[in-house]
Nucleic acid binder design. Structure first.
Lengths: 190, 190
DNA sequence: AAGATAAGCGAATAAATATTCATTTCTGTA
DNA sequence: TACAGAAATGAATATTTATTCGCTTATCTT
């Protein structure tokens, strides 16, 4: 008997992301996805029960990816600002390289596809980020304001930088990256 | 003979915005819009040639609205920081009150509905904002970095605050508003 | 007040899209 | 190597959604 092919799920996800970045969530069909992935439409239903499940799965995977990468190289023993910078740069790098996920996640937020359950799981993934900001506050390096607010502000800044970069399609210089980090740090620092 | 009813366009727009904020751009149908607006589906086609035109028109109107309000009370003669603050607060107030437009515009950016022509018109509307930032730079009050970058950063911060506020559905206190303005100012100031 | 003209209607139609299914192609197991 | 069972296919079907159209209703003009 033939087994399911994990690589195929990857193909499907890649195809869907590519199409959403180009046409938006409202512009993709199961037919488009299968064509882009180079497989038959029916095959999509071997891996997912339907469009809803496919999109929820992709949403969960995208969220998980970006979080997983964020804390690479971060240790509680490193000085805060340096660690914060590491995480910040990780996130930025990831989002620049995976712009399609940025767009996809944004579009999903107000879509009927994502279930409350999927949303809840996404929220849980944010816990380490809250911890990070709170550490900074305890060390008196970060403003003592609503943690969620500071966090959204920081993520918003990164997202905007990524989008700006993409739309103006210039490659982001080291200098510009450092500058934006400074913008962000100046905003959050106590 | 009967004349077209401007109020009806408003009704259609309101209905579409409401639905997009709830279900996303991918979740709305012409039927939904007409039902929500309390008119017949066919009537939509008296006012718009089809779904594409309806959405483009709403996009243009939403963009124009938020810009139009931004410079209310701003004069070139007022000191920069005060003027900047006025504009910043205008934008924030508007977006809080018109959250649905924020969501709608965001969703439209990567949709197949919005034509290049509509996008171009939207870009032109941003000119006064560039002028504002450039004024600040000339007065040495704002960092001398890519104007577009600073602008996106500022808008991003406001957008994020608006979204954060909405999702956590608490009313935004004066204190929190001032804090976020400070975050933003600290980020941009020279 | 009568006629003309366009708005307004919503069921009918056309078009697009998701999903199913009969069939074929693999590939792991014996 | 042969068989079993699941993956893969894509045309056919079901469903959803955009758009049209014959008709009714409203209101402007004279």
């Amino acid at each position: 008997m033939k087994l399911k092919d994990d690589r195929k799920v990857e193909l499907i996800f890649e195809a869907a992301l590519k199409l959403v970045a180009k046409k938006g969530l409202s512009g993709i069909t199961m037919g488009d996805i299968s064509r882009e992935a180079g497989i038959a439409t029916g095959t999509l239903y071997v891996y997912f029960t339907g469009k809803d499940e496919l999109i929820n799965a992709l949403f969960a995977a995208s969220r998980a990816n970006s979080v997983q990468v964020a804390f690479r190289g971060y240790e509680l023993t490193t000085p805060f600002k340096l660690g914060f910078r590491t995480v910040w740069m990780n996130i930025l790098r990831y989002k620049l390289q995976h712009f399609e996920e940025v767009v996809f996640l944004e579009q999903c937020y107000h879509s009927p596809y994502i279930t409350e359950e999927t949303r809840e799981k996404a929220r849980e993934l944010a816990v380490p980020f809250f911890d990070l900001i709170e550490r900074g506050q305890q060390e008196m390096l970060i403003k003592t304001a609503d943690t969620g607010l500071l966090l959204t502000f920081m993520m918003g800044a990164i997202n905007e930088l990524v989008k700006q970069t993409h739309y103006s399609n210039e490659t982001l210089s080291k200098k510009k990256i450092d500058l934006t980090f400074d913008l962000c740090w100046d905003a959050l620092k106590a």
